[in-house]
Every structure is written in structure tokens, then in C-alpha cells.
């Protein structure tokens, strides 16, 4: 038997919560309230799951509750970021991955579009300059007399 065959259980075997309420249930309640708040005030909400002590069961429950929606996006910047809309419009899962594909940050965002997906004004400004430089080099758009 190799070391990988030794399974160390994370929680006591006979330790289900007595009232049937899990952390996942609590998070769903928080998200429901956050959606209502967003509709009224446009105030976004973030739940950071990275350091939350979720059990495997909690994670499965949360995944089952939220499901997968219509939209997903990948960002390749300093890190790799995967954005997935859940089956509830306005509730997004945003995961940042390190170079070795480990999750470095995992959060649920309640907003129309996660901020990181938007192109920032500063970046658009630099794009305009760069594109103008390309135009200048190639002379494509220069109007002829």
C-alpha cells in the first residue's frame, strides 16, 4: 500500500450537523440578499471563498446550487482567471489560478459584469495610442490629398 492509499478523513464520520443547515445554505441566503440589494442600490457584493473553511460536502452543495450559466470568460494576464456566470444572472464565480494551476483566489461576485472583465479606461487609452502608432506606420488610414 503506497502513501497515496492512506486516506485521512477530514471530518469525524458521524458528525452531520443536527439542524441540516450547512455553510453552503448560509452562503446561498447571503447571495439572495445581495441580489436584492444590487437591484435596489447597484451595490455589488463579493464573497471570498479562498480562506473559508468549506468542507468537500459544502463545496459540492454550493456547486450544485449555483450551477453553470450562459457566460464564461478566461483572462490571461499576470495570472489566469476563469469567470463563470452561475445559473442565476448577476451571480458570478471568479477564480484566479497561479502558474501551477492552483486556485489562488476564489470568489463569488454579485454584479452585472465582474469588474476584472471590463477594459479599464487607462488600458483603452494606451490601446488608442498603440493603434494610432500602427496606423501611422502603415499609412493605411491616412487620407490622400
Amino acid at each position: 500500500m503506497g502513501p497515496s492509499d492512506v486516506v485521512i478523513p477530514v471530518y469525524p464520520v458521524a458528525g452531520a450537523p443536527s439542524n441540516g443547515m450547512t455553510v453552503a445554505d448560509a452562503l446561498i441566503q447571503e447571495l439572495a440578499a445581495a441580489l436584492v440589494t444590487y437591484l435596489r442600490t447597484q451595490r455589488s457584493h463579493v464573497i471570498d471563498l479562498t480562506c473559508m473553511p468549506l468542507s468537500g460536502e459544502d463545496k459540492e452543495r454550493l456547486d450544485a446550487y449555483l450551477g453553470l450559466g450562459e457566460t464564461s470568460m478566461d483572462i490571461h494576464a499576470l495570472l489566469r482567471t476563469r469567470i463563470e456566470e452561475t445559473r442565476y444572472a448577476g451571480v458570478w464565480r471568479v477564480r484566479h489560478y497561479g502558474p501551477d494551476d492552483t486556485v489562488q483566489s476564489e470568489r463569488i461576485e454579485v454584479i452585472d459584469v465582474p469588474e476584472i472583465a471590463r477594459a479599464s479606461t487607462a488600458d483603452i487609452g494606451r490601446s488608442a495610442q498603440r493603434l494610432a502608432a500602427v496606423k501611422g506606420e502603415e499609412g493605411v488610414w491616412q487620407t490622400k490629398p
Binding site: D48, I75, A77, L78, L79, T81, S105, E106, D123
Partner: peptide, 18 residues
């Protein structure tokens, strides 16, 4: 890098700081 890299950096640092 774009502003997105900065936001990635912030997200991972604030997650670590809880």
C-alpha cells in the same frame, strides 16, 4: 500588464489577508 493584472494581484492578496 493591463489593469486586470493589478486586479488579480489585489484579489489574491486580499484573499490571503482574509
Amino acid at each position: 500588464f493591463t489593469r486586470r493584472a493589478f486586479l488579480q494581484l489585489c484579489a489574491t492578496v486580499t484573499a490571503a489577508l482574509a
